[in-house]
Simulated scan of single mutants.
Amino acid sequence: MEYDVAYTSNQLMEKLELKSREGFRRNYLKHALELNLVCMTIPDKPNSKNQRYIKK
């Protein structure tokens, strides 16, 4: 990931060459958020279709 570039979950899955959305969320995204490696652009709406993730 590049700094100051917002990525969709699909873009992140492509970068990691993953196909399972649920597996990606459970095994990668959840932990990255907990460790503050990435943050949501719309934190009050985590399920928004416009949600993006940005590197801290």
Rank of each mutant, 00 (worst) to 15 (best):
N10T: 10
K45I: 09
P43Q: 09
Y28D: 07
E22Y: 12
D4E: 06
E2C: 05
K19E: 09
G23V: 04
K55N: 07
Y28P: 00
K49I: 08
L29T: 09
N10S: 15
P46W: 02
Y28K: 02
R26C: 12
S9G: 10
L37M: 09
N10L: 10
M40R: 15
N36F: 00
K49P: 04
R25C: 12
P43V: 04
P46N: 13
N27K: 15
M40C: 05
A6Q: 09
R25A: 10
G23L: 05
K30V: 03
Y28W: 14
Q11G: 15
I42Y: 09
S48W: 04
L35F: 06
R25P: 01
E34H: 05
I42S: 13
E14M: 07
R21T: 06
S20T: 10
V38Y: 00
L33G: 02
Q51M: 14
N27T: 13
N10G: 07
S20A: 10
S20L: 10
L33M: 10
M40E: 15
E14P: 00
L16I: 07
L18A: 11
R52E: 07
R21N: 11
K19A: 11
F24G: 03
K19Q: 06
K19C: 05
A32T: 03
L18S: 10
Y28H: 12
K30L: 14
E22D: 15
L33P: 00
N47G: 08
L35M: 14
V5Q: 07
T8Y: 02
V38K: 00
